[in-house]
């Protein structure tokens, strides 16, 4: 589950999931929902494999979203389906999507960057929760 929360000039993503894998997958979907208004219109025509290492979970989430943003910025890939396997300091993932098609995809925000500001990944009793603020 994810929602967009407000931050004066930018947008925040608040994500929750019973599992860590789910948390990362939902976070990715949340990011693309900010870029494309109708992410349900994204087809799974291409797939990409990503492997990321980081020193802690927060940086891992940051780097994961950053890689996805780069995929969009460099190859105009939009995605809405993710298979993520998270370890404490690394993840491997498959990303499914397609090249942005302006006839079908309604673009929404230009995400300048993922920020470290108030970045958090926490485990509560039965679920994982994360917050990340995007620079718009």
């Amino acid at each position: 589950m994810y929602e967009v929360f407000e931050h004066t000039a930018d947008l925040g993503l608040r994500i929750s999931s019973p599992t860590l894998n789910g948390l990362f997958s939902e976070a990715a979907e949340a990011l693309f929902s900010v870029i494309v208004e109708n992410i349900d219109q994204i087809r799974t025509e291409k797939s990409f494999k990503l492997n990321i290492k980081a020193s802690n979970l927060e940086y891992l989430l940051f780097d994961w979203l950053n890689e996805l943003l780069y995929l969009f910025e460099s190859e105009k890939i939009v995605a809405n389906s993710f298979l993520v396997n998270v370890d404490s300091d690394s993840l491997s993932a498959e990303v499914y999507g397609e090249v942005l098609d302006r006839n079908r995809h309604k673009t929404d925000h230009e995400v300048k960057a993922i920020t470290y500001h108030q970045l958090k990944v926490v485990q509560k009793q039965t679920e994982w929760m994360a917050e990340v603020i995007l620079d718009i």
Binding site: H7, T8, A9, T115, Y116, H117, Q118, I133, D135
Partner: peptide
């Protein structure tokens, strides 16, 4: 001035 990250805008 408004709320930014790290520095205020």
């Amino acid at each position: 001035i408004h709320w930014g990250y790290g520095f205020s805008i």
